[in-house]
């Protein structure tokens, strides 16, 4: 069942995590190959967000190992994992309350340089950082919101800002927690096109999503979690017909 891809950029081996008596993850092993878009699906409370929290260092797993780009990152603090190349968005958007859109795109940037350089004011500090933020604004079509306080913007725009912030961190792997939530069909299509563009640029993507149509159309590979355990893995076409999945998840919601 755990068909580990050969050139995995991210690997989880036998990861378990409990909160009190609740076992949120049980012996989960997954892998994300280079340049791939991989989805994690499962009913509410299946442990999907916990999985993200373990990968990004927000939670420490009770057992198991996380490997990213051949480095063991299991016990690393969150900020080191980001610097190694894993960026994420949140299920309930977490933008910085005091910052403009532009500031969000600067603050996340980590591209070496001496610590002294980041003390320099504004554009003197880092022309490249300035340029990358500019690129991200254009890429996401956020130019007109440049100086707006990010938290005051419409929901869909906030999602974009959050994704842009994650991307300006310069990740090799992007984790998206329910990126389509609250979007209409058109917006979801835009997002799909955008993710495909990113993937074509060589970015690996791991996403949690409830929108089945979106996931089935986008992902190269899917993992299905139920009660913290992995119950299926494979390409969307296989998952769609997997009886265990239908039983645990799809059947109960929609006959998709």
């Amino acid at each position: 069942m755990t068909a580990m891809p050969p050139k995995a950029i991210l690997r989880l081996d036998g990861v378990s995590k409990s909160f009190g008596g609740v076992r949120a993850l049980r012996d989960v092993s997954i892998g994300v190959a280079q340049d791939r878009i991989v989805g994690v699906i499962g009913p509410n409370g299946a442990g999907k967000t916990t999985l993200f929290n373990v990968i990004t260092g927000a939670h420490r797993p009770d057992a198991g190992d996380v490997t990213f780009a051949n480095r063991p990152i299991t016990r690393w603090p969150a900020y080191r994992i980001v610097r190694a190349g894993v960026a994420r968005t949140f299920q309930n958007i977490r933008l910085f309350g005091s910052m403009t859109v532009w500031e969000h795109l600067i603050v996340s940037q980590r591209h070496g340089g001496s610590p002294l350089r980041k003390m320099l004011p504004g554009r003197f500090a880092d022309r490249e950082a300035w340029g990358r933020a500019e690129d991200a604004l254009t890429f996401f079509g956020l130019e007109k919101y440049r100086t707006a306080l990010a938290r005051t913007l419409p929901y869909g725009i906030q999602r974009k800002v959050e994704m842009a912030r994650a991307l300006t961190a310069g990740p090799k792997l992007l984790l998206l927690d329910e990126p389509v939530a609250g979007m209409n069909r058109d917006e979801a299509d835009d997002l799909r096109a955008l993710l495909l563009r990113l993937s074509a640029r060589g970015l690996s993507i791991l996403l949690i999503e409830h929108d089945m149509a979106f996931v089935m159309n986008l992902c190269h590979e899917l993992y299905v979690l139920d009660f913290g355990a992995l119950i299926a893995a494979g390409p969307p076409s296989e998952i769609r017909t997997n009886p265990a999945v239908l039983d645990a998840y799809l059947g109960s919601e929609t006959a998709c």
Partner: peptide
């Protein structure tokens, strides 16, 4: 900006690499 990020949301700040 990094200091302000810690002020606004410490956990999110860590998760964007600060």
């Amino acid at each position: 900006l990094e200091m302000r990020a810690v002020h606004d949301d410490e956990r999110a700040a860590g998760l964007v690499g600060i």
